[in-house]
Design a protein around this nucleic acid. Structure first.
Length: 502
DNA sequence: CGGTAGCAAGCTACCTTGCTACCGGTGCTGTAGT
């Protein structure tokens, strides 16, 4: 079979990007496939093309509503109309209509949460699924344990849908995460297609900067000097807002903050503005980035340290998709790990909370409803967050023969302890990387159980790096006052030719 | 947990120190008969 001809026929492209063909061949030969392809290699094509080539429906599990909408639009641009996102953006009437005519849709996008709705499952069971796709599959491991538990139930859903041929796609996963995905989906005989997580055109820099004023000043300096566009990541919405204001006040560039506290309309607007170069810099929390396909991002700055290496790589991986030289800065000072630790702790119920809850329950058995679930109002008095409560609730739901409080409490505490150990371990490894003085790229690859095939330059601060080459033309111009007109002219020509390459 | 903002007191002329309170991310969602 000539895959390139098929590619040309459906999409008009004349060649595949690295990994695509391999994944598609694996799928077409009927093997469950787990693909780790570098960011920006067009992972969607890996299910789009085989989906079009074979009979039956393709179900794509996607983590974000906005991502689904984008993908649907992308399909429609290619002229494929048999595509739908089955989510809460649909009105009740629309949803009824879609479900009634589900057969008409070749590609169905859906969230893991929606897959928990019995009626939806029932409708999906009536279809012949040719492919079950999990986009951003690392979410299973990263979110499935607490934040979005429905991610950890996809394996069960897969079975109920008749064990369809499965494709899991991700860009950043350790061996452990890959195994976690396979285990969670309960896949047997998986073909793993793994490409390197390394992005050689992104230079890595970690810099000491005391939290507060000093770090702010450094960010302002970087923003004024570095080639834009860029993203600055924060672990706090407020700090992101403040930094955005500061940059705007100094008139450094067009900037906006982006976080989950904004309404959907603003979020979409900001994303679009950034995409179309109406904004140079985004001060964002981790809410920003998934599904951002902007080619020319030149820098990523981390104002706060991420909670794990995988997140860090995902975030810096948004730079330099055009293949041109880009840079990632992480600003750090000792003690920074306390914020991620605090965030990690806040997503698990504390020992005190659990003890309090069971004390209440022993006091009064009526707090358990006839469905075997704990009364909601205990959640509020106990100060449980939505996520914390869900974890507790899950343990009660799984207890089929009436709860044994002692056993349950112990089970919950053991679980929480283990999860916290894992999270703290992630943070510790991140901190080790930051404090390491060995080549940062080599360390990252080691973490992902790869080896560095060749030395690159520029590489990282530990290998030595000339920051000047990352400065924008305007800045260079300022500092080149004393240079000759020949040098000045060559600057212009180099910059122009770089522009043409884009 | 530890940084920081806000305020008041202390000390000296506008600047320093000390106390308290507060904060810190990610997203989906039918508890229905088509």
């Amino acid at each position: 079979m000539n895959l390139v001809a098929e590619l040309k026929k459906y999409f008009g492209f004349t060649s595949f990007k690295p990994g695509q063909e391999e994944v598609i061949c694996s799928i077409l030969s009927g093997r469950h496939t787990l693909a780790m392809l570098p960011t920006g290699t067009g992972k969607s094509l890996c299910y789009q093309l085989p989906g079009l080539m074979v009979q039956g429906h393709v179900l794509i599990i996607s983590p974000l509503l906005s991502l689904m909408q984008d993908q649907v639009e992308q399909f429609k641009r290619f002229g494929e109309k048999r595509v739908v996102a089955l989510n809460s953006f649909l009105t009740i009437d629309e949803k009824k209509m879609v479900l009634r005519n589900l057969r008409k849709y070749k590609f169905i996008f859906i969230s893991p949460e929606m897959l928990q709705v019995p009626y939806i499952i029932q409708k999906l069971q009536e279809l012949t699924l040719s492919l079950f796709v999990i986009d951003e599959a690392h979410c299973i491991s990263q979110w499935g344990y607490d934040f979005r538990p429905d991610y950890s139930r996809l394996g069960e859903i897969r079975k109920r849908l008749g064990n369809p041929l499965t494709l899991a796609l991700t860009a950043t996963a350790t061996r452990k995460v890959l195994n976690d995905i396979i285990y969670s989906l309960d896949l047997e005989d998986v073909t793993k297609i793994e490409y390197s997580v390394d992005r050689p055109n992104i230079a890595l820099v970690v810099e000491e900067a005391a939290a507060g004023r000093q770090r702010e000043e450094r960010v302002l300096e970087l923003v004024s000097q570095l080639q834009k566009p860029g993203i600055i990541y924060f672990s706090s919405k407020k700090t992101a807002e403040q930094m955005a204001s500061l940059i705007a006040d100094r008139g450094l560039c067009k900037v906006s903050a982006y976080h989950a506290g904004l309404d959907q309309a603003s979020r979409t607007l900001i994303q679009q503005q950034f995409l179309y170069n109406q904004l140079d810099v985004i001060c964002a929390t981790s809410a920003f980035g998934m599904g951002i396909n902007k080619e020319n991002i030149r820098f990523i700055i981390h104002y706060h340290m991420p909670m794990q290496m995988e997140s860090y790589l995902q975030e810096i991986g948004r730079a330099g998709r055009d293949g041109l030289q880009s840079i990632a800065f992480l600003l750090y000072s000792s003690g920074d790990e306390l914020l991620p630790i605090q965030l990690a702790e806040s997503e698990l119920p504390s020992e005190q909370q659990v003890a309090w809850l069971f004390h209440k329950l022993e006091e009064n058995q009526m707090f358990i409803t006839d469905k075997g679930i704990v009364e909601q109002h205990l959640r509020d008095i106990g100060g449980f967050s939505e996520i914390q409560w869900r974890i507790v609730e899950q343990f009660f739901k799984n207890e089929r023969h009436g709860p044994n409080f002692n056993k349950l409490q112990e089970a919950i505490l053991t679980y929480v302890k283990e999860r916290m150990r894992v999270k703290k371990n992630h943070i510790a490894r991140m901190k080790n990387w930051i404090e390491s003085t060995c080549c940062r790229r080599e360390y990252i690859l080691q973490y992902f159980e790869e080896t560095l095939s060749r030395k690159i330059s520029p590489c990282c601060d530990c290998c030595g790096i000339e920051l000047e080459s990352f400065q924008s033309f305007a800045k260079k111009h300022d500092t080149l006052i004393e240079s000759t007109w020949q040098e000045y002219l060559s600057e212009i020509l180099i910059n122009e030719s770089q522009n043409y390459e884009k």
